[in-house]
Each structure stands twice: as C-alpha cells, then as structure tokens.
C-alpha cells in the first residue's frame, strides 16, 4: 500500500513554543486515519501544515508525491479540507459558495453544476441551495462545507473535528459520507474529540501529545499494547482506578483479589483507555 501523506521531522513554532515538534507521520492511500490528542496537542496545527495553510520551520511534507513547498499547486489539487470552524462566505447563498469553490478549483464550467447538484442531492441540501449561509443551522452549514470540500474530488480529505456541534442525525450522515468516500478510494485524515467516532471509523490511529506522535497503530493494536482487558474499580478512596491485563483470566483474578471496593467492571480495553494512559489527560480536557 503506497503512502499518500509523508510528514518528516516537521517543526512548527509559535514564538518559543513548538506546537508541532519533530513530527514524523505516514498515512497510507485509501485508509481512514484518525488523529487524536488533547487540546493544544498540535492536531489542528498539523492539519493546517499538511494542507498548506501554515508554514513550518523544519522538516518536509509531501502529499501524493508532491512536496507542499516546492509543488503546492499540485499538492492542493489532491486535498480537500473540512475545517473545525465553518469557513463559508456567509454573505452568499449556498449555491454561490459551492460555485465559488468549484471555480477556484478550476472545475470545467460544463461540470460545475452537475457536481454541485449531485453532491447537494446526496447530503439533502437541495431545498436550501438559494438560502444565504447565515440563515442555516450549524448542521446544514457543515453539510454545505462538506459539499464544497468534495467538489474537486480530492484524493485526501482532511476533517478537523468534523462533528463538533452537530446533532446525532447530522453526525451519522457525515459518518456515512466518510465511509462512502473511503469506499470510493478517498483517503481520510480525521481529527476528533469523540473517541467512539475514531473507533467506529478509523483503520489506524495516531496519538499526538505536546507536538509529538506518541502512538501509532490500529485501534486493536493500541489496545493490545496496553492489555486487552480492563478492570475499572471505584475504590474506598472515592476514586476510579484502571488496571489492564493481557487476558480475561488475569483480570478476573485481580478483580476477585480486590477488597473493600464499591464497584468493579471488567471490560475490553478501548481507545479512550489508551489515550488517557498515554497522554495522562482526558479527551476533552486537560
């Protein structure tokens, strides 16, 4: 399987602080890659660097074999980005925003409307096409942004916290879109605060902390490294503790040895356990 994104030794500093600190990362063509990290770990900066929005001081980045500094136009043709913030022109209609994106990506005039209508139909935006963006709810804006990012048929789609603020239906629709795009060969690079989203969608996961990649693998590989079975117990000191074991027998044995505890749960280790153990932080906060 070929690597479509290659990041080598990238450093991005804001003043004296390194937001990304010697990051090495390779994303395979055709996979859904999840990028997890606590707030301020460098996820969004990484996406901005790879997608050519932010400069960097050291290292190299290539997308589809094109160095993003030496050959930015060719690299940009391969990428689509759905940003964390909805970055549409609110003074224009949904259709005008899409048309503008199609133009800027140099989609031939004869194809623009066909692609816009196809994608708008798929995400259910038909009846909103002539409404101004600033009259739409967050979910509909996100759908419009999704269509804009897909018009030029990118080979790699970056989604930076795509489902933040969406209701359950909109989130599930976006998940379906991601899966369908991936089925059609689009590589997905997803950052998310929602562990279940990453577990549900991603083939491989990278965990970043303090600007460095600290873990990389499939969700099951990461869980197995920690121990496939977790024991979660609420002890006498009113604090929940976690222990990890390579087999359920070992976990049962440990659980039965616990003395004065109020609650014991034996379960499979999940990605959130890996995240907390590796970063020392919860997903949504410090």
């Amino acid at each position: 399987m070929s690597e479509i994104i290659i990041v080598e030794g990238v450093v991005k500093k804001y003043g004296d602080r390194a937001a990304v600190n010697g990051l090495d990362l390779r994303v395979n063509e055709g996979e859904i890659f999840g990028f997890l990290g606590p707030n301020g770990a460098g996820k969004t900066t990484t996406v901005r660097v790879i997608s050519t929005l932010t400069d960097y001081s050291e290292g190299s980045v290539s997308v589809g074999g094109h160095d993003i500094l030496k050959d930015p136009k060719e690299a940009k043709k391969l990428m689509g980005v759905i940003q964390q913030h909805i970055s549409l022109d609110t003074d224009l209609t949904v259709r005008e925003n899409m048309m503008h994106h199609a133009m800027m990506h140099k989609i031939p005039k004869s194809e623009r409307m066909r692609r816009i209508n196809e994608l708008a139909d798929y995400v259910g935006l038909d009846e909103y096409m002539d409404k101004m963006i600033n009259t739409l709810s967050g979910g509909w804006k996100k759908r419009a942004a999704t269509v804009c990012s897909l018009l030029h048929k990118p080979k790699v789609l970056f989604l930076d916290e795509p489902t933040v603020g969406l209701d359950v239906q909109a989130r599930r629709l976006l998940w379906d879109i991601i899966r369908k795009l991936n089925d059609n060969g689009t590589t997905i690079f997803l950052t998310s605060h929602y562990i279940e989203e990453v577990e549900a969608l991603c083939d491989r996961v990278g965990i970043i902390n303090d600007g460095k990649l600290i873990a990389l693998g499939t969700p099951s590989e990461l869980c197995n490294k920690l121990g496939s079975t977790a024991v979660e117990y609420y002890g006498a000191d009113n604090k929940t503790e976690y222990k990890y074991f390579t087999s359920r027998e070992e976990a049962n044995e440990f659980a039965s040895s616990l003395g004065d505890v109020k609650t014991v749960i034996i379960r499979n280790t999940n990605l959130e356990d890996c995240f907390v153990e590796l970063t020392g932080k919860s997903v949504s906060g410090p």
Binding site: L53, E74, K76, K77, Q83, S87, D89, M104, K106
Partner: peptide, 18 residues
C-alpha cells in the same frame, strides 16, 4: 472579516491558485 472571523480566506489559500 473573511480572514479573521469567517475564516473563508483559508479556503482560498487551499486552492491551486497563484
């Protein structure tokens, strides 16, 4: 406004334009 508030200028910067 496009650059600092709506961030729609970012979209332009990601397009293959000179």
């Amino acid at each position: 406004v496009q650059r600092l508030y709506y961030r729609s200028f970012d979209e332009m910067m990601m397009c293959p334009l000179s």
